[in-house]
């Protein structure tokens, strides 16, 4: 019971972007993922990519109010990584030995589907941002991603006042939205 509450606490911290919680989970889980990937035709970089993607999937789940962890964080992340890596191996056309591990895993197919959909949306947003061109991309990123205030942005980008910067931001935003929805609707 105590372990469970600890894990729930940790997960809450993770959902709230607590750096300590992130680091704790990272330290706890990453080595076993690294071992798994290295044992199965992977490299250190693969291990890092797969693990971080799994962590993002966990984060998306943790953000949901309704989410209740039914197993250990380690098991969940391991299961996701395993699925992701096996899929990647298949895409690369490499032989996959299915009986690689005796570690316990849980079914994560549904979660992975949701994650994949989100991932596509992120890609659309990223492409739209990349196509936006400077300085629009930087302004938008500063405001919406780094959550900077308009005053700081005006100073950083050399606008005479915040209103001008804001004006510029909205012009950029209109273009970004056009780019985004052009792709997003197709995606839909």
């Amino acid at each position: 019971m105590k372990v469970d509450t600890n894990e729930q606490y940790l997960l809450k911290g993770f959902a709230n972007n607590d750096a300590k919680a992130i680091e704790y989970i990272y330290k706890d889980v990453f080595p076993s993922i690294q071992t798994f990937i290295l044992n199965n035709n992977g490299s250190y970089d693969d291990a890092r990519d797969i693990f971080q993607e799994a962590m993002i999937a966990l984060y998306e789940k943790a953000k949901q109010e309704s989410f209740v962890l039914t197993c250990q964080i380690k098991t969940y992340v391991y299961s996701i990584c395993r699925r992701l890596w096996l899929k990647r191996l298949q895409q690369m056309g490499k032989f996959v030995a299915t009986s690689i591990s005796m570690e316990e895993t849980i079914a994560v197919e549904d979660d992975l589907e949701a994650h994949k959909k989100k991932q596509i949306e992120y890609t659309i947003m990223e492409q739209a941002l990349n196509n936006l061109g400077e300085p629009c991309k930087s302004i938008i990123e500063a405001y919406y991603i780094k959550k900077k205030g308009m005053l700081d942005i005006a100073q950083d980008f050399g606008y005479t006042n915040a209103d001008n910067a804001k004006n510029q931001k909205y012009k950029c935003l209109i273009r970004l939205k056009k780019l985004f929805f052009a792709q997003y609707n197709i995606g839909e």
Binding site: N17, A19, M55, K118, E121, Y122, M125
Partner: peptide, 19 residues
């Protein structure tokens, strides 16, 4: 969408940091 994207980007940065 852009908020979700930003959360993802921030988390990636945090994960890189942690790593």
């Amino acid at each position: 969408q852009i908020n979700a994207y930003s959360e993802c980007k921030n988390l990636q940065a945090a994960l890189h940091n942690a790593h």
